[in-house]
Amino acid sequence: MASTYPTDGATAEKNDIPHEKPLSLGTKMLDKGAEMLQSLKPIKQMSQHTCTFALYSQDMSRQIETHHFVTRINQDFLQCAVYDSDDTSGRLIGVEYIVSDRIFDTLQPDEQKLWHSHAFEIQSGLLVHPRIPEAVAKPELENLAKTYGKFWCTWQTDRGDKLPIGPPSLMMSPQCMVKEELVKKRDDKYNMSTTAIRGSRTDIMGPDRLNAMADYWREHKKCLGIEVESTEMKKMTMFP
């Protein structure tokens, strides 16, 4: 039997979740001590911060600003921790994996359906590297324009959820301009102009051949989602 969660922007009942306790002095000391003594190597490999926008596949009217903190695994594969802001209070809302067109073309068609292209997102100026001059970011933007991403949102903070509620939602890359108020809010924050940035990227090209299985919704007018349901557990060997 499938579990039911709000999926249309409805806010989870706030009374179901107790008020959060502020950090105690002991917890703060533990965190500081751990920061000094532990390596935190995976986090220190994050080398880029990109800001863009994403759409929920089941409801394209729900558009959110997202901040991706990027680790480069190799030339063909990136992994991103996605937050709802780049402030100290930013909440981890999901994860995105990014592959080159060379890798994407080797995936099975059913897997390719879960991925989106990045070409329009970059050509339109929607994806930016905050506080990095365009001339410096240009080589990376040219590489990213030829990639594909798979982004699972695990915490729908835009609908007011106080905790990560329900199954993850598959997110889509914008294939048209997003809501004007969202773009303006970001432009004001970073003192930038998305319109001007778009004009400077006319020479950035996407993949030589955009794979038709990406951006599945655009061709088939259907979204892909996850439902949580009860299923039989596989038997396992019990050890004494």
Rank of each mutant, 00 (worst) to 15 (best):
R159M: 06
Q45R: 13
T106E: 09
T195V: 12
T11H: 08
M205K: 15
P18L: 06
K21W: 04
K150F: 09
T147G: 02
T194G: 01
D87H: 12
M46L: 10
L37G: 00
C223V: 02
L30K: 15
V228W: 06
D86C: 13
L182C: 04
S230W: 06
E232W: 08
F69M: 12
D187H: 04
E121F: 00
N191A: 15
D187Q: 13
P174E: 00
K222E: 14
M238Q: 09
D161R: 07
R62Q: 13
T66Q: 05
S173P: 03
N74D: 15
G225H: 11
S100K: 00
Q123N: 07
K41W: 05
H19S: 14
V82C: 03
Y148L: 02
P18A: 07
M236Y: 13
E229Q: 10
D158M: 08
L141I: 02
T88M: 13
A34C: 09
L78C: 06
D158E: 15
A145G: 01
S24Y: 04
S193H: 04
Q75D: 15
Q48Y: 12
P133D: 08
G225F: 11
M60F: 07
Q58C: 07
D105R: 15
D208S: 12
P133I: 05
N211I: 11
K21P: 03
K28N: 09
D187C: 14
Q48L: 10
A10N: 11
L182Y: 05
D215N: 15
D31P: 00
T195Q: 13
I103M: 10
K235R: 12
A196H: 10
G149P: 02
C51D: 00
P130N: 03
Q156C: 10
M60E: 14
S85Q: 06
N15Q: 12
S39I: 08
L182P: 03
D188T: 14
V70E: 10
V99E: 01
S117V: 00
M60T: 13
I122E: 01
L170M: 06
K21T: 09
Q123L: 02
L144G: 00
M29I: 15
I43E: 11
V70H: 04
N74A: 07
C51A: 14
I103K: 09
D105T: 15
Q156M: 08
K113G: 00
M172C: 11
V136S: 10
T231F: 08
G206V: 01
C80V: 05
P139H: 08
